[in-house]
Measured scan of single mutants.
Amino acid sequence: NITNLCPFDEVFNATRFASVYAWNRKRISNCVADYSVLYNLAPFFTFKCYGVSPTKLNDLCFTNVYADSFVIRGDEVRQIAPGQTGNIADYNYKLPDDFTGCVIAWNSNKLDSKVSGNYNYLYRLFRKSNLKPFERDISTEIYQAGNKPCNGVAGFNCYFPLRSYSFRPTYGVGHQPYRVVVLSFELLHAPATVCGPKKST
């Protein structure tokens, strides 16, 4: 009989979030998941669920729940959905087409922007091929755009693959930082360890 609440607040209220290319994953298990708490945590810009209804979450049980978190800019949030393409979905964080879970995003301009520009958040701009779903690539190998090998040196047709967002508070919403948490629900042929409040007794 599990009584402890799932530590969603640790994920959502973390002081620092990860850069999207090096997104963070927390496995959540053996706890009571009260998803209604999430609705009250922040004024969400996005709370979209796929393959599951957000209002039914509190009635369900899962084997595992994974919470992935990272920062992107406002106009990239739409890429965090099944079947999307674009720089983020292709080279940084890719959801599977049959994704079961929820994408939660909110504006973090007050936390993640600086007047002089916050350069701490990076994204991958160049990659030889698209990522597979939930693949994480943290390599910093020089990207070869031409025929000549780069031998690890940046220059003509040889690019450092990561680029930094420079978040400034005066930017338009599309270029402001957004914190994203992706909850993916895993149903294996194994005992369910993460249940809503109704199912945990």
Rank of each mutant, 00 (worst) to 15 (best):
I80Y: 01
L188C: 15
T201A: 14
T85E: 08
S164Y: 09
T201M: 14
S200V: 14
L188N: 15
F99L: 00
S113E: 06
P161Q: 01
T63G: 10
N120S: 14
R163M: 10
A190D: 13
Y91V: 05
K132C: 05
K48G: 01
V182N: 00
Y21I: 03
T170F: 10
I88E: 03
E186Y: 06
G152F: 06
T85H: 15
F167T: 05
K48W: 05
Q144N: 10
Y21H: 07
V37E: 09
G101Y: 00
V173C: 09
S29R: 09
H189C: 08
F126W: 14
N92R: 02
N107S: 05
K114M: 11
P169A: 09
V182R: 00
A145C: 08
N118K: 10
N30I: 02
S69T: 09
F47S: 07
D34P: 06
C102N: 00
Q79E: 07
L111K: 10
D90H: 06
Y21L: 04
Y21R: 03
V52W: 04
S36G: 09
P54F: 15
K198F: 13
W106D: 00
S36L: 05
V65R: 04
I80L: 06
N40I: 05
L131W: 02
L41M: 14
Y123P: 03
F62K: 07
L57K: 04
L122E: 15
Y159A: 09
K94W: 00
R25K: 04
G86D: 02
F160E: 15
F185Q: 01
R163V: 11
S166M: 11
Y171M: 15
N109D: 09
A14E: 08
V20D: 04
G146K: 05
V194S: 11
A145Q: 11
Y66K: 06
C150M: 04
F160Q: 14
N4V: 10
D34H: 04
I142L: 13
F45K: 15
R179C: 06
G146M: 05
A154S: 13
V65W: 03
G146F: 04
N24H: 12
S116V: 12
S53N: 14
D90I: 00
K26P: 00
W106S: 01
K114W: 09
T170I: 08
L125M: 14
L57E: 05
F12Q: 01
F126E: 10
W23T: 03
Q79S: 03
P177I: 03
R136D: 03
L95R: 00
Y159E: 13
S113L: 06
S116T: 13
Y121I: 05
Y35Q: 06
A192F: 13
T85M: 07
K48P: 00
N30K: 07
E76C: 01
C150N: 05
V52I: 14
L38I: 14
N58Y: 07
D137M: 01
F99G: 00
V194Q: 11
Y121Q: 06
F70G: 02
N107I: 04
S116C: 07
N118D: 14
S19H: 08
N130D: 10
P133A: 09
C31K: 04
N107Y: 03
Y91D: 03
K132Y: 07
F156A: 15
R127C: 05
K94M: 01
S113Q: 07
G146I: 05
F156V: 15
C195H: 08
R73E: 07
K148Q: 14
A190L: 11
P149C: 08
I2N: 13
G172V: 14
G101R: 00
V11R: 02
D98S: 09
N30W: 06
P54E: 13
K198R: 14
P149S: 15
R136S: 05
T55F: 10
P133N: 03
S69Q: 04
N4R: 13
S129E: 15
P82H: 01
V37T: 13
R124C: 04
A33S: 08
Q176I: 02
Y143R: 06
V37I: 12
I28Q: 02
D98K: 09
D98F: 03
L183Q: 00
L131N: 02
V77T: 05
D112T: 02
R16N: 13
L188R: 14
S19R: 01
R136N: 04
C158V: 04
E186I: 00
A14P: 00
S200M: 14
L122K: 15
K110A: 13
W106K: 00
L131D: 04
F45A: 15
K199A: 15
Y66C: 07
T170D: 15
S53P: 10
Y123D: 05
F185W: 07
C61P: 09
S19T: 03
N87L: 13
P82F: 00
R136L: 05
K48Y: 04
C150Y: 04
Y143Q: 08
S36Y: 04
K94Y: 00
K199I: 13
I104P: 00
H175P: 06
F185A: 03
G172S: 15
N1H: 08
I72W: 01
S53D: 15
L188T: 15
L122N: 13
G51R: 11
P197W: 15
L125A: 15
R136I: 04
L60G: 08
I138T: 13
N157F: 08
A22S: 11
C49M: 00
S19W: 01
Y121H: 10
L122I: 10
P191S: 12
V71R: 01
Y121S: 04
T170V: 09
C61G: 06
P54N: 09
V37Y: 12
G74Q: 08
A18C: 04
G196I: 10
N1D: 09
K132V: 08
G51V: 01
V71A: 02
D90G: 04
T55Y: 12
F126G: 12
V180H: 00
R168M: 12
L57D: 06
N109Y: 10
A22F: 05
L187D: 11
F47L: 13
C102Q: 00
Q176R: 03
D75H: 07
A190P: 10
G174K: 13
L122F: 15
K56V: 09
Y93I: 03
N40P: 08
S139E: 07
F12G: 02
V32Y: 11
R127E: 05
L183I: 08
T63D: 12
K94A: 05
G174F: 08
A22T: 06
L41A: 11
N58E: 15
N151K: 14
C158D: 05
H189Y: 09
N151P: 07
Q176W: 01
S29H: 12
A42M: 11
T85S: 13
A81I: 01
Y91G: 03
A18S: 12
G83C: 08
S139P: 02
S36Q: 10
V180T: 02
R168G: 11
Y21Q: 05
L131E: 05
F17W: 13
K128A: 11
R136M: 04
D98I: 04
K110S: 12
L95W: 00
N64R: 10
I88P: 02
I88H: 02
G146Q: 06
L183N: 00
I72T: 01
T140V: 10
S108A: 10
D34Y: 03
D68V: 02
R27A: 09
R127Y: 02
P177L: 05
Y21C: 01
N130C: 10
S129D: 14
E76L: 01
F8G: 03
R78G: 12
C61Q: 10
P96Y: 00
V181M: 05
A105V: 07
A145P: 06
Y50Q: 01
P161M: 01
A67M: 11
N92L: 03
R163I: 08
T15W: 00
D112R: 00
I104W: 10
L57M: 08
P161S: 03
V65P: 00
W23G: 04
C49I: 00
Y123H: 12
R127A: 05
C31I: 04
D68S: 02
C102V: 00
I138L: 13
Y123Q: 06
F62T: 09
N130Y: 10
Q144T: 09
V77H: 01
G155N: 10
N147E: 14
V194H: 11
I28L: 14
Y50C: 01
T55A: 14
Y93F: 04
S69A: 04
S19V: 01
N107A: 06
N40R: 14
E10S: 10
D68A: 01
G86P: 02
G152C: 05
C31S: 05
L60D: 07
D97Q: 09
K26C: 07
G155S: 11
I2P: 10
G155W: 06
N24P: 00
C150T: 05
S36H: 08
L57R: 04
W106M: 06
L183C: 02
T15K: 13
N120D: 12
L5F: 11
N87E: 09
A33L: 14
R27Y: 09
Y171F: 13
